Each structure stands twice: as structure tokens, then as C-alpha cells.
Amino acid sequence: MSQIVNGTPAGQLPVVAWQKSRRSNPSGNCVEVAELPGGAGIAVRNSRDPEGPALIYTTEEIAAFILGARDGDFDHLLS
């Protein structure tokens, strides 16, 4: 696959190691992330639909999101 784009079915991505948060629960309410080979970015998928579409982000975009979450930028979404 030469270029990986948003919406690519997760089952069509190269073989990657999907990871979910330790805070995920057994009812399947979680997302999974995987580093794409060759620095192509980070894929995000819905754990309840592992063959469904994946969102693809750059490592810089994911870093901005994670750092914002650490800073509490999204805490208002948990109310």
C-alpha cells in the first residue's frame, strides 16, 4: 500500500500491533491505536469494529492531542 489515507479499512492496513488503554473496559467501549510502518503515522480504530475504517494521524497530531489531554484541555468532555 503506497499511501495510507483516512477511512482505509483497518483490515487492509499493513500488519500492525494495535494497543488500547489499560483503562478500557470489557464492554468494548474503547479505541485502539497503532504505529504505522515507515513513519507513515498513527492509525486509530474502533475496537468494536476492528475491520472498519481507520483514522490516520501524523505523529505530530497525536503528540498534540496527548499533550493536550495531559494538560486537561478535554476534561470538560467527561462531565
Rank of each mutant, 00 (worst) to 15 (best):
M1W: 00
S2L: 12
S2G: 09
Q3L: 09
I4E: 05
I4S: 05
I4C: 09
V5H: 07
V5Y: 05
V5R: 07
N6P: 07
G7L: 01
G7S: 06
P9Y: 01
A10F: 00
A10Q: 02
G11D: 02
G11P: 06
Q12K: 07
V15H: 00
V16H: 01
A17E: 09
W18H: 02
K20W: 14
S21T: 13
R23P: 04
R23T: 10
S24D: 13
S24A: 15
S24K: 14
N25P: 06
P26W: 11
P26R: 14
S27C: 13
N29I: 12
N29M: 15
N29C: 13
N29Q: 15
C30T: 10
V31E: 10
E32T: 05
V33I: 09
V33L: 08
E35Y: 04
E35P: 03
P37S: 00
G38N: 06
G39V: 07
G39S: 08
G41D: 07
I42Y: 09
I42A: 12
I42H: 09
A43H: 01
V44D: 03
V44H: 03
N46Q: 13
N46T: 07
S47W: 09
S47E: 13
R48A: 13
D49G: 08
P50R: 08
E51P: 00
E51Q: 11
E51S: 08
G52V: 06
G52S: 08
A54P: 04
L55Y: 04
Y57W: 09
Y57N: 01
E60Y: 10
I62D: 08
I62M: 15
I62K: 13
A64M: 09
A64H: 13
A64T: 12
A64N: 14
F65A: 11
L67C: 12
A69S: 12
A69T: 12
A69M: 10
R70P: 02
D71M: 06
G72T: 05
D73I: 04
F74D: 08
F74Y: 15
D75L: 11
D75G: 05
H76Q: 08
H76Y: 07
H76S: 10
L77Q: 14
L78F: 13
L78P: 02
